[in-house]
């Protein structure tokens, strides 16, 4: 008898624990009452989210939170940033410590379902690639048969390369090294023919660690999928909508050529799409539960997606990443803003 009570109590406790994320009160109301968004970001990845010399957060993940704040409050500064490690990130979102997790996180099925989270949309498509010295004359990863490849130990990178080699009958000779800095140093010292890691990491390594970046080339093959993007927790669809459409507005603004510089002129545009985005034709803000100027504020204060990309990771940043998969769909990429209407 005693044990049955004990079991019941334990069961109830576990049930409460599991149900906690679902019980979360409407996030949007809490955010509005607080007057600022609590945004979980990476403690420091160049171009995605990192504090600058003045301690201000910068990066494309940070811009998602700034855009949402601009849409909701009309002020991109109304964000409180919480630096999260990989181990903390999901708990912080589940427990309500942060309202949105924008921390270069890959969307996967289990995260979207059993972790109780909702993946919004990829704001950066990453994937594993290869970098080689230009003087080798290699044009494709398929030419790397018998090549020595520097790779970091214990990562999915190592497994992805093995899978790719087996599938395409390429015999790589992996040089497995424990630390990422050592791996990079080993590659640039000439010990390996190629180095494999996420493509964005390769580009940043080339621009910063190589003595002459033009001596190296990143091969076109991408051998894994890493759609990185923001997440919210289950239980508040309106909040999900707001974060999602704040990001969509950045994509649509780029597609229709609306930038921070020309957004005021664009208010006079005759294009019905532009009119709807900028709130000249009313109705969109009402549907989202924000002011009609929501997207105007995003573009004015944060910029469109292309501006955010160039400023943080692209041509105007030290990382100098190509748009690649992250170009708009009209320019051969995967970035596809949904119609704002």
């Amino acid at each position: 008898m005693k044990y049955r009570y004990l079991a019941a109590i334990l069961g109830a406790a576990c049930g409460t624990l599991a149900a906690l994320p679902a019980l979360a009160g409407p996030t949007l109301d809490a955010v509005k009452a607080r007057g600022e968004i609590v945004c979980g970001v990476n403690t420091g990845v160049a171009g995605f989210s990192a504090p600058d010399s003045r301690g201000e957060w910068k990066g494309i993940d940070v811009d998602i939170c700034r855009a949402t704040a601009a849409a909701l409050f009309g002020d991109a500064k109304k964000v409180k940033y919480v630096g999260l490690t990989a181990a903390q990130r999901f708990t912080a979102l589940q427990s309500g410590e942060v309202d949105v997790l924008s921390r270069n996180t890959t969307g996967t099925l289990t995260r979207d379902t059993s972790l109780g989270l909702n993946f919004i949309a990829p704001n950066f498509y990453d994937g594993q690639g290869f970098i080689v010295a230009k003087k080798l004359g290699v044009k494709s990863a398929k030419d790397l048969g018998g090549a020595t490849v520097c790779v970091q130990q214990g990562t999915t990178t190592e497994l992805n390369m093995a899978d790719y080699g087996r599938a395409n009958k390429i015999a790589f000779k992996p040089v497995v090294i424990e630390k990422v800095e050592e791996t990079v140093a080993t590659f640039f010292s000439g010990r390996c023919d190629a180095y494999t890691a996420d493509a964005s990491a390769l580009a940043s390594v080339r621009s910063t660690a190589a003595s002459n970046p033009d001596d190296y080339v990143i091969l076109p093959e991408i051998i894994s999928k890493e759609p990185l993007g923001p997440m919210v927790r289950h239980g508040d669809d309106q909040w999900f909508d707001l974060v999602k459409w704040s990001f969509m507005a950045m994509l649509e603004a780029e597609e229709y050529g609306i930038t921070t510089a020309n957004v005021d002129e664009m208010l006079k545009s005759n294009d019905p799409n532009v009119k709807r985005i900028l709130g000249v034709t009313e109705g969109m803000g009402k549907a989202l539960g924000t002011s009609e100027k929501w997207a105007y504020n995003i573009v004015k204060q944060v910029g469109n997606y292309g501006e955010s990309f160039d400023r943080n990771v692209g041509a105007n940043s030290p990382l100098k990443l190509d748009r690649g998969l992250n170009a708009l769909w009209t320019k051969g990429g995967l970035m596809y803003g949904w119609p704002i209407r």
Partner: peptide, 24 residues
Amino acid sequence: IIGLYDLMNAAKASFVDPAWRGSS
């Protein structure tokens, strides 16, 4: 490890900046 920016973590955050990479 829990994301507080004490002296050591702030130092780590400082050399993330790609303009100063390699200054660890």
